[in-house]
Design a binder for these strands. Sequence first.
DNA 1: CGGTATCCCCCGCGATACTG
DNA 2: CAGTATCGCGGGGGATACCG
Lengths: 243, 243
Amino acid sequence: MSGYGDFCPVARASEIFAERWTPLIVREIVNGRHHFGEIHKALHRISPSVLGERLRELEAKGVVERRKNMSGRGSTYHLTGAGRELKPIIDALGVWGQRWLELRDEHLDADALMYQLRTHIPEASLPPQHVVLRFDFRGSMRSYWLRLERPHSELCDYAPALEDLVVRPDVETLTRVYLGEAALASALRTGIVAVEGPSRLMRMLTKWIVPSRFGSYARPMRYHESTGEFRQLSAVRAQGRLS
Amino acid sequence: MSGYGDFCPVARASEIFAERWTPLIVREIVNGRHHFGEIHKALHRISPSVLGERLRELEAKGVVERRKNMSGRGSTYHLTGAGRELKPIIDALGVWGQRWLELRDEHLDADALMYQLRTHIPEASLPPQHVVLRFDFRGSMRSYWLRLERPHSELCDYAPALEDLVVRPDVETLTRVYLGEAALASALRTGIVAVEGPSRLMRMLTKWIVPSRFGSYARPMRYHESTGEFRQLSAVRAQGRLS
DNA sequence: CGGTATCCCCCGCGATACTG
DNA sequence: CAGTATCGCGGGGGATACCG
């Protein structure tokens, strides 16, 4: 970028924080990703060279601390004190985005969604013996398999075993469910998200797929069959609280 | 920019907020600049085309509202509800920058500093009849004149009248004074900032030049004559509060 | 003054390959 | 797997001119 040439602390902070990819990288480290590869997988559209450059910048500015792995290979990246104080800013940005920004088609990404869903399954709700869900997104050829089993679940692009439940959502609806804008229960009821399988497992779906931590700030949306679009339920704005 | 293709609210917010110049534009509107020209003067390094583009984007995203001037010419730009909710984020960024970021040479800018100083003079401290200050920055040819008079003071690059006081600071020191990192009083005492004029007016200087609203979060710095550098006074970190 | 159009340069960044 | 080097393109944005 090359700076603003401005001594104002907002400008100096923006030089670092408001640069492409940087807020998301910090978010990922906040979320507990400490390895290069983990961050890169979570931000799968960033190129490794840019990620490396950003991490170096953040280290130079005292936001990130790089710890060489004692096992020789690789490092882990941790937030410094300064970096940890960015967390409330990240959170505030997320809350703001949730409250005020529309979800648009260009934000939809089935891969990323499945990745998020997988990492967000409450561990307490995981079944002791494995359950395999297959997700077939409408209008897409490929399927995703989610193999749930305590303590670790797994996301595959092939069938790891015979599936117990088949879910047929569309990307937008399931994304809005994840964002907390739509309720999975009603999406199942109206059939926008179709499911095949034992009703016992169907009922578990709402335990496995839960809204993100910004979900309580979402504006409730409702699907309108006539237009095929989601619209804001009312002018009422949710008051939320970060978990 | 072209987005992150990510439904996460932090990413969607970053698409807007964490783009070059945008945080500073919002800051300026928060600071009460509502005209294109005012914003452009405050951010004198942005090109008018980029400023126009950003304002259009912000309007499209519902952050800024553009009101056509009824007098025909021009418009004014105001924050919407969404835009106003960015203020705490701007403030948090400023506090963070103040707490954690070094002031570097590339941030220094005498023009911008004088502009800020002029807008920050507490109105209550302005003299009823005009007082003219001349600022000669060390190592610089050009001078700045500050003409103080209630209710409006003025910054000139020529002598608007005979000067009552001549101030010879260096850009770094005066910037740190403005940022709240250094005390003007001690800079005057040690002579880093030299002054010529009646001592009555010299004493008024500390009423006219006061730290920015982020000043209370600054890390106190002290000038070390041996190295010619400012260094952090101690590990003690100031606890501040935004005014 | 308030803003837009043009032009062009440069560098940011994405893709890919490559190395320990 | 953890990164770094290279390369080439696109477009972001700075400077400037220009128009209302």
